[in-house]
């Protein structure tokens, strides 16, 4: 089975776990072990708030291997801390960037249209999938975000095991929400998700290096779902989202 990792992280963590393989070469070695053909990565410096510098560091880092693809962090252009939509589109096209990551809580800005409309309009028009960690939009905030921008395809990553009662109603109400499988670990979670919402809305990711690639591939491979469903989750759904991007 082919895997595409829809979201992982590159760069030096402030507090790496004991034995954590965070260097790019170590992540590439894990990709080999886990049959991960491609990984969409963002840079830790960008995620820590130095967005443009971090995105630049990412472009340098991914030159080490063509299997690494860029995922830029983004924020509203307020105070000219980040690119306006037109310039962002040009820069993404020039650099071959097809996915974005937002962090409203991490970057301390509102996720509502009065603050993020321009960025989200751009994502909707260009059909660029927008990633964010569950911690950025917990509970009602998840619904607020997805329903505020119904034309944006959102992928929530870095979830957990105790969120289904929140997640389910949002999935019902917001067909534009997809779920990253990295650490989406309710018991029989993938089986239940496929039964209620279909495999089409699950996107494989690892959350490397803070997540585990071996755990992530095992979760999908050992799930009690069909081979076709596994293939959609492993790579098919992400390839479909990427094929729809218009920059």
């Amino acid at each position: 089975m082919r895997f595409i990792d829809a979201s992982c992280r590159l760069g030096m963590p402030a507090a790496p776990g004991e034995g954590m393989p965070w260097k790019t070469e170590e992540i590439l070695e894990l990709m080999d072990r886990c049959h991960i053909e491609q990984a969409f990565a963002y840079h830790i410096v960008a995620r820590d708030g130095e967005v443009e510098d971090g995105n630049g560091l990412l472009m340098e880092e991914i030159k080490k291997d063509s299997r690494l693809q860029p995922q830029w962090c983004a924020m509203p252009a307020t105070f000219r801390e980040f690119l306006h939509a037109d310039a962002l589109g040009d820069a993404m096209k020039k650099n071959g960037v097809k996915t974005l990551r937002i962090a409203p809580k991490g970057f301390a800005h509102s996720a509502m249209p009065y603050a993020m409309k321009e960025l989200m309009d751009f994502a909707a028009q260009s059909r660029v999938p927008v990633f964010f960690d569950y911690g950025e939009a917990v509970g009602d905030a998840l619904y607020d975000l997805c329903s505020a921008y119904p034309d944006v395809k959102f992928v929530v990553t870095n979830t957990a095991y105790a969120l289904n009662r929140f997640l389910g109603p949002v999935l019902d109400a917001c067909p534009n929400l997809y779920v990253g499988t990295g650490n989406y670990v309710p018991h029989q979670g993938l089986e239940t998700f496929c039964r209620y919402y279909s495999a089409d809305r699950l996107i494989f990711n690892t959350n490397l290096p803070f997540g585990s690639a071996t755990a992530a591939v095992s979760l999908v491979c050992l799930a009690n779902i069909s081979k076709e469903e596994k293939e959609k989750i492993a790579c098919g759904n992400m390839e479909r989202l990427l094929s729809e991007v218009r920059l």
Binding site: C34, P186, H187, G189, L190, T214, A215, S218, L219, L222
Partner: peptide, 17 residues
Amino acid sequence: DFITFECSHILGRVAMS
């Protein structure tokens, strides 16, 4: 720790270590 959460990923993590 299952059924608090799924266990296939933990089993796989040990097996693929």
